[in-house]
């Protein structure tokens, strides 16, 4: 039998399996005196798209290695639909993975890699795979050694999305993709969600996470510091607004969502805005605004802004 034609019921039965898609209890990984992952408790239900955020070195990839059984936890446990992550033969029938930095066998063509991964993986929908090859504009006839970073990533993404595994574990899967492919990626995630597949998406791209995730967890220095819905995450956003005006200074202090008002020069004001901008814009309009600049802070800035004060007191690692 051609192994690539195998399909598994996969997602449809995901919810009926032994537990949540991902369940970490007290998950800890120490390398000598360094603690990469520290007492992580996490529960991702079947069918949810979960964003796993954090700056570089926060422990995202280590957590995924523990989840995949590539590394053994120093303490605690990780389970995939109730199956111990260390039992890879059973746990990996329920998941597909895209690593952060995809390395392929240089002599195999893209098509051959896809064939191998379908034959060894948890079951593949070959018709959907062929559709994904078209959508991601992959040339599958080229040897992997000639692929760019983005093309190698596409091969792994196509292989993972084409499975019907009820959990997709994606580690920074779009870092090498161009904006068009990034859009295809978001579509593929949405389709996976429609099929009931859970997606565990590690990223440090806030826009991507906002676009596709139901909930996010924020990891810092190996500790999970926040698990929130994306709506809650949006409320963390503080947009920085700068305006130049010719009229009287706008009255901004006290308006809802406006903070840190600062006059940077005569006729110039800067403030942060959270939530609906209507009141602030009305106030600015009265001041005859001549220029307006709105800058969304980077994820890093949000981390610093939100956790630097009143948090655990630790600094975000560079």
């Amino acid at each position: 039998m051609d192994a690539t034609t195998r399909t598994t019921p996969g997602a449809t039965t995901g919810a009926t399996r032994g537990g949540p898609a991902v369940h970490a209890v007290g998950l800890t990984k120490r390398y000598g005196s360094t603690t990469a992952v520290d007492d992580l408790h996490l529960r991702v239900p079947a069918g949810e798209v979960f964003g796993f955020l954090g700056p570089n070195g926060a422990g995202k990839s280590t957590t995924i290695r523990l989840l995949l059984g590539l590394a053994r936890p120093s303490a605690g446990s990780a389970r995939v639909f109730g199956v111990d992550a260390a039992d890879v033969e059973r746990a990996h029938r329920l998941l597909a993975h895209v690593p952060a930095d995809v390395a392929l066998w240089p002599h195999l063509t893209g098509a051959e890699v896809l064939h191998l991964l379908a034959a060894t993986g948890p079951g593949t929908d070959t018709a959907y795979r062929d559709e994904l090859v078209e959508r991601f504009a992959l040339d599958p006839g080229k040897p992997a050694r000639t692929y760019s970073t983005g093309n190698r990533q596409k091969v792994a993404l196509i292989a993972a999305f084409a499975t019907r595994a009820p959990l997709l574990v994606l580690d920074e899967p779009t870092s090498g993709l161009d904006p068009l492919m990034e859009r295809e990626f978001r579509r593929a995630v949405a389709q996976a969600r429609q099929r009931g597949q859970a997606v565990f998406l590690s990223s440090h791209q806030l826009a991507e996470v906002e676009a596709v995730c139901d909930r996010v967890g924020i990891l810092r220095a190996g500790r999970l510091v926040e698990v929130a819905s994306v709506a809650d995450l949006r409320s963390l956003h503080r947009t920085e607004v700068s305006a130049s005006y010719t009229g009287a200074a706008p009255r901004l202090s006290g308006l809802a969502g406006v903070e840190a008002v600062e006059t940077t020069a005569p006729g110039r004001v800067r403030f942060t805005l959270t939530g609906p901008p209507g009141a602030a814009l009305a106030s600015l309009a009265a001041a005859d605004v001549t220029a307006l600049a709105v800058r969304e802070p980077s994820l890093e800035e949000i981390f610093l802004d939100y956790y630097g004060e009143g948090g655990s007191g630790e600094q975000v690692r560079p």
Binding site: L68, L70, V88, H97, W105, V113, G121
Partner: peptide, 18 residues
């Protein structure tokens, strides 16, 4: 070498024991 240059990840993530 396949392990150290990470080619093995995709197979290690398949339902195959070590």
């Amino acid at each position: 070498a396949a392990e150290s240059d990470r080619r093995l990840v995709l197979l290690a993530a398949a339902p195959l024991t070590r």
